[in-house]
């Protein structure tokens, strides 16, 4: 049984009570504060008053600060502004300037060089010598414990730049490309440059399409209809072929 020896001085401060209620006390302090509360009616009553102030504030806030304007118009406006933002920041929009033309020709040459043998009508493919696709050691259980579209961490800018450099591309054109994992991490793909390649947003076979394949492969692997290694091999050697094989003939 706890005895208070020194009168009001030994009561808990409002700060301690609030931090306790907010779960912001370290476990040591929380224990001693809780010990005091068990023994002390005054402090319990004070805690209740503070909680009362919190409820009143919450209620006041809901009444006084409720957003009144319906969202639809504002939402449409934001959508329009986002499109505008996406457009205006794509280099060379509506203007074919000489520098842009020169850059474009350079990129064309770079693409001819880099994608040389592997370009077909479906768009550029990852180059095996740069992006063979890499996996990390991962068990089937781990793969299937995460959902097929659980978001991977964003690819750091420095890594994106490495990928563009490896493909001999001008980083100024980066906005038109998505740097994408060849073997998706959800199928055990590694977080390495050798598993990353630049995919143009404009390609018909783009990252959105590849997402569908990845989803399908995850399903097949986790329902035991396809071996994980076979899925990794097929998506890394020819993902478009894999799409036709596992999802369907067309997009």
């Amino acid at each position: 049984m706890r005895t208070r020896l020194s009168g009001a001085d030994s009561h808990l401060s409002d700060a301690d009570l609030i931090r306790l209620a907010d779960g912001e006390l370290g476990s040591g302090s929380a224990r001693s504060v809780l010990g005091h509360l068990e023994a002390c009616w005054q402090c319990r009553a004070r805690l209740r008053e503070l909680e009362g102030a919190i409820s009143e504030f919450v209620r006041l806030r809901e009444e006084a600060f409720a957003p009144a304007i319906p969202a639809a118009g504002a939402r449409a406006m934001l959508r329009a502004r986002l499109s505008e933002e996406a457009r205006t920041t794509t280099p060379g929009r509506f203007h074919i300037s000489i520098p842009a033309l020169a850059t474009g020709l350079l990129v064309l040459v770079a693409m001819l060089v880099t994608f040389g043998g592997t370009v077909n009508a479906d768009g550029p493919k990852p180059r095996l010598s740069i992006t063979p696709g890499e996996t990390r050691p991962v068990s089937l259980a781990e793969v299937c414990a995460s959902s097929a579209d659980s978001a991977a961490d964003p690819i750091p800018e420095s890594v994106r730049l490495q990928v563009f450099a490896a493909y001999g591309m001008d980083p100024a054109q980066a906005d038109a490309y998505e740097v994408d994992y060849l073997i998706t991490p959800e199928l055990g793909g590694a977080y390495t440059v050798r598993n990353l390649w630049p995919q143009p947003y404009s390609a018909r076979w783009n990252a959105r399409v590849k997402d569908r394949l990845e989803h399908r492969l995850h399903q097949l692997v986790c329902s035991g209809q396809l071996d994980l290694h076979a899925a990794q091999r097929d998506i890394s050697t020819d993902w478009i072929g894999a799409y036709r094989k596992y999802v369907g003939p067309g997009i």
Binding site: T90, P91, M111, A176, S202, N206
Partner: peptide, 12 residues
């Protein structure tokens, strides 16, 4: 894609 970059149709 390159034409897209030039005239700004790079993003569908």
């Amino acid at each position: 894609a390159v034409v897209g970059l030039l005239v700004g149709t790079g993003r569908p």
